[in-house]
């Protein structure tokens, strides 16, 4: 996993609430057996018409936002299915950070496994960041994971919370499985042996 420490990039505004994983990556693109190549179909049904032409009014089709690396999204972003294809598509497009007032649980966890930082902010901070994101080519935010801050184009700063373990993994690009094998393997062996005696029917 690519590590995430500091990111300065264009932030695209997507104020719609409840943007679900079917919107992020529709099901016809889940028939892949790879993790890559989904970026071209990110937000497919909002981004292209039936003939495959770009819909000009969609934010990521606008010149200022075509290379957005951050999305400032409406409440409850990523609700719906568990498909990790959603963060894979964001990452493949080049988005490394999503900012919202809330995220769906599974999507939120999936982001961290892929080097994407989802940030929860208050409604007031969200309104300010959405305003920043609406400034077209000036919509540049700097996200610093180490100091847990977002800096806007006018220098205003917003701080955010992130779980210490998730932060550590993201900052260092650590693979969960490797960590578990190193740190928890003997505990799992012990647990399994004990559980097989206590609940042998499992």
């Amino acid at each position: 996993m690519e590590k995430f420490d500091k990111l300065t990039g264009v932030a695209a505004p997507m104020p719609l609430v409840n943007i679900d994983t079917d919107m992020i990556i529709p099901k016809q693109f889940l028939k892949t057996i790879k993790r890559t190549g989904l970026g071209v179909n990110l937000f497919d049904e909002m981004r292209y018409d039936r003939k495959g032409n770009e819909i000009e009014t969609f934010v990521l089709n606008k010149p200022a936002y075509r290379n957005a690396e951050i999305i400032v999204a409406g409440d409850n972003f990523g609700c719906g299915s568990s498909r990790e294809h959603a963060p894979w598509a964001l990452l493949d497009f080049g988005v490394r950070c999503v900012i919202s007032t809330s995220f769906a649980d599974i999507f939120y966890n999936n982001c961290f496994k892929n080097g994407i930082l989802p940030i929860v902010v208050t409604p007031e901070e969200h309104a300010k960041l959405m305003d920043d994101a609406e400034r077209g080519s000036n919509a540049v935010l700097t996200v610093d994971l180490e100091s847990q801050t977002i800096t806007g184009p006018d220098g205003g700063e917003v701080s955010f919370e992130v779980d210490a373990f998730k932060k550590h993994c993201l900052l260092n690009g650590l693979d969960d499985i490797g960590l578990t094998m190193t740190n928890a393997a003997s505990s799992i062996d012990t647990f399994e042996a004990k559980a097989s005696v206590e609940r042998p029917w499992v």
């Binding site: 568990s82 963060p87 599974i106 496994k113 892929n114």
Partner: peptide, 8 residues
């Protein structure tokens, strides 16, 4: 019982 992503 709950859903998980592919990395999980």
């Amino acid at each position: 019982a709950h859903g998980i992503g592919t990395s999980e």
